[in-house]
Write a protein that binds this DNA or RNA. Structure first.
Lengths: 125, 125
DNA sequence: CAGTATCCAACGCGATACTG
DNA sequence: CAGTATCGCGTTGGATACTG
């Protein structure tokens, strides 16, 4: 079974939810959303990106950027100077992802306390 | 740094995106969304749920349900009969999560091909 | 029926060291 | 500057067996 076999309530009837898990596989890891957020205002170089995202290792920055590039969410531009210079930038597709992520953000802000309380209640019992 | 330290473009200005990663921690695992989708039409018993979600093990169904229950997204009702009967149901909070998930779904459907092609191109080079 | 318990393989990620 | 290579640990999740 895939998520697509089950349908969520939708704006228009008959629409299903194929591929939701695929998005989570895209940006559901530890760092992708931080990178996307860090790139929202324009191109950023590798080490600058690293400085902006506190706690990320060089290795994970490279790996995560490769994934985002592979999926067409981020573009990589190499300027063959010495020393080399590489700029990462959101593609249009990558930028368009900010909208649904915003919807999640709003939900999170609205339900943050609900969840905290639910957890406290559950852990108490 | 948290995601909240970076702001996404928003409907209203000055709004940030705190807690996005927290949602991913809530439902970003392998099975949560399948369970939520399976519960959208009303309460379902344990083994029925298991039958509806192809591939999930008994163990993972239990664990994932406990997590959703703890976070207040799913409620668990025990009918102390013999044999026991347990019904799981989306809470209002859990149900409200379907909306932002829908936004992600729509994005996925719109960008599915883009992503496939991007991957094909990347893997070819 | 609705779980628990145990074991284990795969993966994600961090730390560290090295390079064109 | 912008990476790659290697190692190792902790977590996730699957398989299987057992239980009130």
């Amino acid at each position: 079974m895939t998520l697509g076999d089950m349908d969520f309530p939708t704006p228009g009837p008959g629409h299903d939810c194929r591929m939701v898990r695929e998005i989570l596989d895209l940006v559901g890891d530890k760092w992708s959303l931080y990178i996307i957020a860090s790139l929202k205002d324009g191109p950023v170089r590798f080490n600058e990106l690293r400085r902006r995202i506190d706690g990320i290792s060089q290795r994970m920055l490279t790996i995560t950027l490769r994934g985002l590039e592979r999926n067409g969410l981020v573009s990589r531009t190499l300027f063959p100077t010495i020393p080399p210079r590489v700029e990462y930038e959101l593609t249009d597709v990558g930028r368009s992802l900010l909208e649904p992520v915003m919807a999640l953000t709003l939900w999170a802000n609205a339900n943050q306390l609900n969840i905290q309380h639910a957890r406290a209640r559950y852990d108490a019992s």
